[in-house]
């Protein structure tokens, strides 16, 4: 469905994930983050950039891989994106919801 986020019109899934990463912008990210109760700071942006690169490389996303990336520790990831770190961070990064259980 089409919705307005961060001043632009974007296509999202029922769960609020962007359907097309090309519609992502920093403003859209801030808009999604607001809905999720997250105020984006430098540390958040670093994680978002890492996730987008992983996605573009076709690497499956797991919490463990973020923890090993050097971008932030697992504990920090949970602190940055509380109540569902990978679900929230991928949503804000404009990439599909990860299917991993780990």
């Amino acid at each position: 469905m089409e919705t307005q986020i961060g001043g632009s019109s974007v296509e999202v899934t029922d769960e609020g994930y962007l359907k097309d990463i090309n519609q992502w912008s920093r403003e859209v990210a801030i808009g999604i983050a607001e809905k999720e109760g997250v105020t984006l700071a430098d540390d958040h942006w670093k994680v978002l950039e890492f996730l987008q690169n992983q996605y573009k490389n076709g690497t499956p996303l797991t919490i463990r891989s973020v923890g090993k990336s050097g971008v932030c520790s697992i504990k920090e990831l949970y602190a940055l994106f509380p109540d569902g770190p990978l679900k929230k961070s991928t949503k804000i990064a404009g990439i599909p919801k990860p299917v991993s259980c780990i």
Partner: peptide
């Protein structure tokens, strides 16, 4: 599948809360 060995898994669980 990126599932860690038991020792590392315990660290991961603790970090997750």
């Amino acid at each position: 599948l990126d599932i860690p060995p038991v020792g590392e898994f315990l660290e991961m669980l603790s970090a997750s809360g």
